[in-house]
Each structure stands twice: as structure tokens, then as C-alpha cells.
Nucleic acid binder design. Structure first.
Length: 276
DNA sequence: AACGGAACCTGAAAGC
DNA sequence: TGCTTTCAGGTTCCGT
């Protein structure tokens, strides 16, 4: 269930495993493969075979593997997607949806819930969702003035607005909640109600939360909270526990069907009067 | 145009 | 025990 940090770790892994490698065997499940004028899953897998992986890039939660001949495989991990390294002789994994083999490695794409996407296309012909992405929270950073300006025109809640990938690419349900807690902003505040100072705090919160997560995940196997790893977050999944800052019990609310955890004391419903 | 809600899919955990 | 409901770090589509 990846947000930007897990996708960035996936990118680094894929780059280490596949960059410069010639693909000797490619399989793509038609169940999550999106057509793009270059044929179906089978035909595109055939096109990929024999080509060299030139680079692995990321924008927001999307990955792009660029191959020889202007060809690219776009990958979105959805809720449960993962790229893992196996041996070529290893059997297909549970929920395996794709495999990319080189002479010495076998990289598998595993996705239980099938919300992920694999799309084959010419390298310059990205999916519409990729093209619509806003600035990447890690690579581009979050420009506070630009964020404030954009939020000013949005009536829905700030939490819901943060999940819109055209505003800041890469923020998901966890980091939206974490960033709001860091910035001391109540998730149900209308996006347009944020002051310039609050937008600055929020921009810092987004960058900090994502950077910290990447620092934790880099070079290690990704272990999701639901899979039994320690929960490294300040508030996500910690409803009922004390706020790390003030000790008040954290509460969980639901917005647009997604849960948000917040501190009722640190994140007041009314904007705090700013001391100047 | 922008919003809330349902839909897509599968399984684990909690509730009765 | 077994059946039902809820929940999961995402996106898209549909009706208002």
C-alpha cells in the first residue's frame, strides 16, 4: 500500500536490479495491463523482450521503466503492488502479475488486490494520470506560495485536497494525516481557509514526513504497518494513543471514506490565532 | 466544475 | 464455531 516513499524505494530497487540489463523473458498479466495502441499484454511483453532497460524513473506514485527503442512500461502499485527480486528458477509467486527476467535475475510484480496498473507505451506517451500530476513532493519539493494559491480555490477539506495528485504528487492517506499533524492543522478545515503561514507549515510537514519515511525505508525491505512491522508514524494508526507532542488522546475520523487520525488539541477546528 | 459516494478486488481482523 | 461487517498507505467513474 504504497505512497511516495515506498514507490521511491521500489524505483531504487528496480534500478539496481535492472538498469543496463537485457530482458530475456517478459510476462504481463492481462488483468491489470492497460492498452495504449501497442497491442495487448502478450504483444507488448513480446515487444519488451530482448530490449535493454535504460532507466527507472518515478513521478508521484508512478514508475516508468524506459527501454531501448523509445518503449516504456508504466507501473502504478495501487494498494498492494510490490516489485520483488527472485531467482529465475523460482516458481511464480502468489498474486504474481508480471515478471521481467534478465540473464541473472528475475524481477516479479506481485499485486493481491489488482488496483495496480501496468501500461505499455512509447516512452513519451504517458498515461493521462501521469501527465496530470502536480509537482513531486520529493524531487520538486512543495512550494508554499503555489500550494496556498491552489488551495485558495478549493472548498473541500484540506485532507481531501491533499489526496488530489494534481496538487502535490505522491501524498497519500498516511502522509496527508502526518503532514497535517506536523503543521497543526485540523483535517476538516476547508482547504481555502488556510493562511499563507499555515500553507508554509503544511509544505514543510509534507516534505518532512516523506523524507523521514524514505530515510527509514531506504536499503531495507519495505514492511507495511498492516504486515506486522512497528508503526513508525506519529499519528497514523495510533488512534487512542497519546499525541507525541502534547499527550492528548488521538482520535480517528472518516472523510470521503478514508480515515484520518488527529490530535484534537494540537489541531484545533478553528485556526489558531497567529502570534506576530 | 467540483463534490461525495460507489465501484474496482482480495483477504485479515473484529464483531456478533 | 461460523457468519457478517469493517477495514486496508489508490484511483476512476458516475450522478448531482
Amino acid at each position: 500500500m504504497p505512497e511516495l516513499p515506498e514507490v521511491e524505494v521500489a524505483r531504487r530497487n528496480l534500478e539496481a536490479w535492472l538498469r543496463g540489463a537485457r530482458l530475456t523473458r517478459v510476462e504481463l498479466s492481462p488483468r491489470l495491463f492497460v492498452m495504449s495502441g501497442l497491442g495487448g499484454a502478450r504483444a507488448f511483453a513480446q515487444k519488451m523482450q530482448g530490449r535493454v532497460v535504460r532507466s527507472v524513473e518515478r513521478r508521484g506514485k508512478w514508475l516508468r521503466l524506459v527501454l531501448d527503442g523509445e518503449l516504456a512500461l508504466f507501473s502504478h502499485l495501487g494498494m498492494t503492488g510490490k516489485w520483488v527480486l527472485r531467482r529465475r528458477a523460482d516458481p511464480s509467486q502468489p498474486y504474481e502479475r508480471a515478471r521481467l527476467d534478465s540473464a541473472r535475475r528475475s524481477v516479479r510484480y506481485v499485486d493481491q488486490r489488482l488496483f495496480g496498473t501496468l501500461q505499455g507505451a512509447r516512452a513519451d506517451h504517458a498515461p493521462a494520470a501521469w501527465q496530470a500530476l502536480g509537482p513531486d513532493a520529493l524531487v520538486d519539493g512543495v512550494d508554499a506560495a503555489r500550494l496556498h494559491e491552489r488551495l485558495a480555490r478549493i472548498k473541500r477539506s484540506i485532507k481531501e485536497a491533499l489526496l488530489d495528485q494534481t496538487i502535490v504528487a505522491g501524498v497519500g492517506n498516511i502522509h496527508a494525516a502526518e503532514a497535517l499533524w506536523r503543521a497543526r492543522i485540523h483535517p476538516e478545515r476547508p482547504a481555502s481557509s488556510l493562511s499563507a503561514a499555515e500553507a508554509r507549515e503544511l509544505a514543510r510537514g509534507i516534505e518532512g514526513s516523506i523524507r523521514d519515511a524514505i530515510r527509514r525505508g531506504d536499503g531495507t525491505e519495505i514492511v507495511y504497518v498492516e504486515e506486522g512491522g512497528d508503526n513508525p508514524f506519529d499519528v497514523y494508526g495510533k488512534q487512542g494513543e497519546p499525541c507525541p507532542r502534547c499527550g492528548t488522546r488521538l482520535v480517528r475520523i472518516v472523510q470521503a471514506g478514508r480515515s484520518t487520525v488527529l490530535c484534537p488539541h494540537c489541531q484545533p477546528r478553528r485556526a489558531a490565532r497567529r502570534a506576530t
